[in-house]
Amino acid sequence: MQNKFVSILCGGLTRAAVTCPLIAALGLAMVFAPTEETMGQVQRILYIHVASAWLGLLGFAVMGGCGLAYLLRRNLAWDHWSRAANEIGWLCSSLTLLTGSLWAHSAWGTWWTWEPRLTTMFVLWALYSSCLIVRSSMDEPHLSARIAGALAILGLLDLPLVIMATRWFRGIHPVSPEMEPMMQVTLLLNVIAFTVFFGLLFARRHSQLVSESLLHQLEIHVLADHPPVVNEVRTIPPLSLETF
């Protein structure tokens, strides 16, 4: 009874902790933050764009770190973290490219330009994608963990070089423009709220991956002990949720 109450309370608190800042951040970003003079409303894309770009980079660091930990320890628990970071990071970097492209279209009049940060983000996205492809193409968990881990570490080493290489072409991306205090507060709140929100998604995906792998082991175990009955007339029908 006590335990249940505590768990419900915790769940509610987590949800509130995620939802409230998110709503506040959205409200600030969409309505209350002052409108920028030259670009107008479009500048409001900044808040989600910067937040997701930050998460894309953070995700890569987490993925690389956990990949390294896996290679050193050979413990699949690290790979689950790395895998979850891979998916969330891929999502965030895709969103960055998407929002950035929309913003660039109305601010610069082009969907895409070969500008240092855009190119870097694109390479980051490609690295995320290649790790995802590796993971999805292999069934053996340790093998895919090993390969994806090594790829993630290589990607982490690669990123500074990509940044250097692309920075030496001239760019039009603003580095860190002057902002009004209200805009700064909005941006900060957005970054925090998004970090918490995607952190929750990350944790969810991670726990899902853990139970998936446990279930997989259990299934192998059970299949060995109780092979499916073939000779009997009454075999077990494949189950779907509709059966309940």
Binding site: Q41, L98, T99, L102
Partner: peptide, 16 residues
């Protein structure tokens, strides 16, 4: 619909 609203909608659509 302005670009800014469009991009917010697309953003949350993808997340959803």
């Amino acid at each position: 619909m302005s670009t800014f609203v469009t991009s917010y909608v697309i953003f949350w659509l993808v997340v959803a």
